[in-house]
Amino acid sequence: MSKYYYLDVSLDFAEPYETEITGVYFKKNIVSAVNQLFGEVAAAVNIDILKYNSANRRAVLRVPKTHYIKLRSSLTLCGKFEGHPCAYTVHKATPLLLALQGDSRDYTY
């Protein structure tokens, strides 16, 4: 259907972490998580940040469909950001970018 998968991801810390995280550091952390779990072969694929909000550390990621599972499991198993305990929350994952805008789960009746 689509060549890519899109993920709405946010980075949460166990203890308050004040330092601003730029998009570059955000991506670096994700790529190194993939590198740790699946090595250079998997870290070589294009993982793109389409949109990033440093205020709530939330981003929209794009990854080729074939590597979606690898990315998602790496995000799950990643527990450190520069030595600080953290966790990634995947709010939504979809092969259609438009679905991040709103789908049937967001309806209010």
């Binding site: 779990l37 699946f38 090595g39 072969v41 998997a42």
Partner: peptide, 10 residues
């Protein structure tokens, strides 16, 4: 080498 290329999983 497997650690480098395929990571912990490999």
């Amino acid at each position: 080498k497997v650690q480098q290329l395929h990571g912990d999983f490999g």
